[in-house]
Every structure is written in structure tokens, then in C-alpha cells.
Amino acid sequence: MEWTCNADAGCLAWIRDSIRKELSSRLDAKQLDEVVLGVGEACANIVKHAYEGKGGPLTVRLEKGAEDFEIELRNRGKPLDPGACRPRSLDDIRPGGLGTYFMSCVFDEIRYEREPDGTNVVVMRRKWTRPDPKDGDR
């Protein structure tokens, strides 16, 4: 499954709805909310940081495997600073910086890559069955 849209704040609901619809037969309501949250945060990062609010192409690809599924986001904006992708400590209650923390909670693996042609790729993988993320020691 693959979708392409212009990465602006208005496209986020459409991407979330598309992901929700595609995964609704395999995940329960809470798992769906978690995955949709993580994908939404990753896309919001692209809108805000990669394209700096100016928009540009964003391609979302979903691949379902036997054990897990993978969501890949491709954009041609500024490369993400790997340091900025590190989730912050929850002891520091302040606005901002929670998005990458949510992504790290709801996905088992996140990779940031930059292809030779300048395309930025974020790959997020999650097993179909996994422990409740809020029970983990993150």
C-alpha cells in the first residue's frame, strides 16, 4: 500500500485515517490508536522540520509481513538531525519533544536513512503482537 500527498498540516488526518483503515482488521482499538499516534508524530516531524512548513512530497508505504508490519515515510526535505530524534526524558515536563518519545514507545524499530539522491527515509517497524508500551521501562 502506498500513498503520496503534499506534506502540510492538513494532510496529517488523511494519513492517520488511511493507516487506521489499512490496519483495522489486524489490530485492536488501543493498538490502532498507538500506531496512528506514532505515524502521525513522524509525519508531523516531516511537515515541521524536514519541509519547515513549506510543504513537499511525502510518500507513505505500508508493508504487512507475517510477524510484523513496516511503515516507510519518504520525503525530499531537510535531513533530520539524528540528535534531534532522540526522545527526551519524561522527568522534564515541558511542551515539545514528546513526538519522538511516542514514536519510540509504539514501534519496535525506527531507522532514519538518507539516499544518494537526497531522499530522506524513516522506517518504522512493529510486531503484530507486543507488550503494552506503557509497561516498558523507557
Binding site: R16, V36, G40, E41, I93, R94, P95, G96, G97, F102
Partner: peptide, 13 residues
């Protein structure tokens, strides 16, 4: 239906 980190930031403020 959906609240993300930007919504939480507003509530924290």
C-alpha cells in the same frame, strides 16, 4: 478522536 504531542504541549502550557 485523536490528540498528538502538539495537543499535549498546549495542555501543559
Amino acid at each position: 478522536r485523536h490528540m498528538d504531542s502538539s495537543g499535549i504541549a498546549v495542555l501543559i502550557e
